[in-house]
């Protein structure tokens, strides 16, 4: 029982980061029908910013906002340079464009920094734990969960209570109609990329605090987690993306602690197989998004 509770808390901590990443992926998918394989690059950019700042001896109080600003900036820049040129293109083109962006960004770091791992100092409290009864809780997980809840609440407020949120949800439900209703597609799409970058930035801060390092291809893992979580939840559903993130986090932690020793290193592989099974039995993901093809 205690162990399960422990797993639950660990899983929520991990799932929080995935939820933020997945929400960022889902927001972009909503307005552009683009599955963003370059989403993880926002964290890579943040990682190199953290590396540079850390070399200057800056503290995490400065590095944290720096990572977020870099992620938002990179998100907007990528939209301007690449994605704005393929708006309305076929799904095939969109998928490969984001794949291409992923490679260009990581290749730039490969070219101008180096292929080797760059490490930076992590805040001291990241590894601290405290006890509640016989539970061992990481300070880090606590912070992650609290910040994620606040972020999600703020995002909900933004989406439900502001004009931008209404426009974004409208565009996600039916982009063409939203445009006919006078929603400015340019500003909604840019807003969506800014929001997506912001969410990736917050997730990135935690991701980088935990890893304490970055490489040119460091974006692959967060990208995959975000994309899979969004897909588990049901692509196109913002709520589903958050749910998918938590489900993925919990599944990983539970499997890692329950699988027999011989298979434990293959946890990620097992998670993928489970996801594949989920799709076989529930192809539309956890939350169904209604979309009908008119004939």
């Amino acid at each position: 029982m205690i162990e399960l509770l422990q797993n639950l808390i660990d899983g929520l901590g991990r799932g929080s980061i995935y939820a933020l990443l997945a929400l960022g992926v889902a927001v972009i998918f909503g307005v552009m029908h683009l599955l963003n394989f370059a989403h993880g690059e926002l964290i890579t950019v943040g990682g190199y910013a953290a590396y540079a700042a850390s070399n200057q001896g800056w503290s995490w109080y400065v590095i944290t906002p720096l990572i977020i600003v870099c992620a938002v900036g990179a998100s907007l820049l990528i939209e301007r340079i690449a994605f704005s040129r393929v708006r309305g293109a076929s799904d095939f083109t969109l998928l490969l464009t984001s794949f291409g962006v992923h490679f260009v960004v990581s290749a730039i770091f490969l070219l101008y920094v180096s292929a080797s791992v760059k490490t930076f100092s992590r805040p001291r409290w990241v590894t601290n734990t405290y006890s509640v009864g016989s539970l061992n809780i990481e300070v880090f997980d606590t912070v992650v969960i609290v910040v994620t809840v606040i972020t999600l609440l703020a995002t909900t407020w933004l989406l439900q209570r502001t004009m931008f949120g209404l426009a974004l949800r409208g565009a996600a439900a039916d982009f063409d109609t939203a445009r006919l209703m006078g929603v400015k597609s340019d500003s909604v799409i840019r807003g969506a990329f800014a929001l997506s970058g912001l969410l990736a930035g917050i997730a990135g801060v935690f991701w980088l605090m935990r890893s304490g390092s970055t490489t040119p291809s460091a974006g692959i893992d967060p990208m995959l987690s975000g994309v899979l979580a969004a897909l588990i939840g049901g692509l196109g559903s913002l709520r589903g993306a958050v749910l998918g993130g938590f489900v993925l986090g919990l599944a990983e932690v539970l499997l890692r602690s329950r699988l027999p020793d011989g298979i434990a290193p293959l946890t990620d592989g097992v998670v993928f197989v489970l996801i594949a099974l989920l799709f076989i039995f529930r192809p539309q993901g956890l939350i169904t998004v209604a979309h009908a093809e008119r004939v």
């Binding site: 464009t97 291409g100 490679f103 290749a107 070219l111």
Partner: peptide, 10 residues
């Protein structure tokens, strides 16, 4: 060459 491949795709 890696940049070249990525840019070609894009």
């Amino acid at each position: 060459q890696t940049v070249f491949l990525g840019l070609s795709m894009l």
